[in-house]
């Protein structure tokens, strides 16, 4: 059994979630007694790509061609399915992301592979192939067996604690027949926040709700996020009111996050919001209403005025 890990780059570096996928893939390969190959698409230096070795990879295939620079879903999935075919990979692993979901879906379609997302543990391979995945937006788990020859699994963030070594991986160029990758779409404009921590990737998240009272009051929250090196998020009403951009909205219909620490400021904790954050390791809730339902889902709580509490937290972080 051979394992192929699909990875993604951000600014020429492996995304943390991709390093987690590499580490997970290496554990799976050891478990099934097979080899593991890492596939990476896009522009990055060989020294960076060799770092996949720190997390258990021995070989990285690097595909980088002119029409592979934009996030071209159709082209990426073709590269993934062709690579899986040529390596006779039987297990394809990725971290969940909005791009990876799309790429893995199409590649699984091409290979007639069973695909399971939101996987939270290493597979059970002693009798068949079973994975445990999160369902009902974090409210339950399902042990799911995959019966197709080729198996696709997309893992959730923070599934295994990363162990780093100083090994490095051999990087090979993967030549891609770009002629066969037709341009099916044209990117007109990319609007992207720069210089901020990516929310789905973040280990620490500071989030604000209607209790912040208005967009002009966000500075206190941004200060704490900056001191922590955390990403910022918000509740649905806040993004609906345009106080914050939609890509910061976490919840049932927004981004689902699974950071180590989620600090909720002035968010009451409606069930729709909890659905987006219930995979967080530690939840801190700051709310002036002691009856706010969010306290029931929290590990630490502070009943108080966010504008009074936030500067104290920021000062304490700076004093660390």
């Amino acid at each position: 059994m051979s394992v192929l890990v699909y990875t993604e780059l951000a600014d020429g570096q492996f995304k943390k979630s991709s390093l987690e996928a590499i580490f997970y893939g290496s554990k799976v390969a050891t478990q099934v007694g097979g080899s593991m190959t890492v596939l990476v698409i896009g522009s990055a230096a060989d020294e960076e790509l060799a770092k996949a070795g720190n997390f258990g990879a021995t070989k990285v295939l690097h595909a980088n061609a002119q029409n592979l620079t934009a996030e071209n879903i159709m082209a990426y999935s073709k590269v993934l399915s062709e690579t899986a075919k040529s390596l006779a990979a039987t297990i394809v692993v990725s971290a969940k992301s909005s791009l990876a979901d799309a790429v893995m879906a199409r590649a699984a379609g091409a290979l007639k592979a069973g695909l399971v997302g939101n996987v939270v543990e290493l597979p059970e391979t002693s009798n068949g192939f079973k994975v445990k995945r999160s369902i009902f937006t974090g409210k339950a788990f399902a042990e799911t067996s995959i019966t197709s020859d080729v198996k696709f699994i997309a893992i959730k963030k923070n599934v295994l604690p990363l162990e780093e070594t100083s090994n490095s991986a051999a990087v090979e160029k993967l030549s891609v027949d770009t002629g066969s990758l037709t341009e099916s779409s044209k990117v007109l404009e990319t609007i992207k926040a720069t210089g901020t921590v990516s929310l789905p990737e973040a280990d620490l998240v500071v989030s604000g709700g209607r209790g912040m009272k208005g967009p002009e009051n966000w500075q206190a929250l941004l200060d704490l996020a900056e001191a922590l090196g955390a990403a910022t998020a918000c509740s649905k009403p806040v993004s609906d009111l345009d106080w914050r951009p939609h890509h910061e909205h976490v919840g049932q219909t927004g981004v689902k996050v699974a950071p180590n620490l989620y600090i909720a400021c002035g968010i009451s904790g409606a069930i729709q919001h909890l659905a987006g954050v219930n995979s967080s390791k530690v939840i801190v809730v700051i709310n002036k209403d002691p009856e706010a339902p969010f306290f029931k889902a929290a590990d630490y709580g502070i009943v108080g005025d966010v504008f009074d509490v936030l500067p104290k937290l920021t000062a304490a972080v700076k004093a660390l």
């Binding site: 404009e189 990319t190 901020t196 990516s198 939609h246």
Partner: peptide, 9 residues
Amino acid sequence: EIEGGKEKL
């Protein structure tokens, strides 16, 4: 929607 923003195509 892409991470941290959006892409028009």
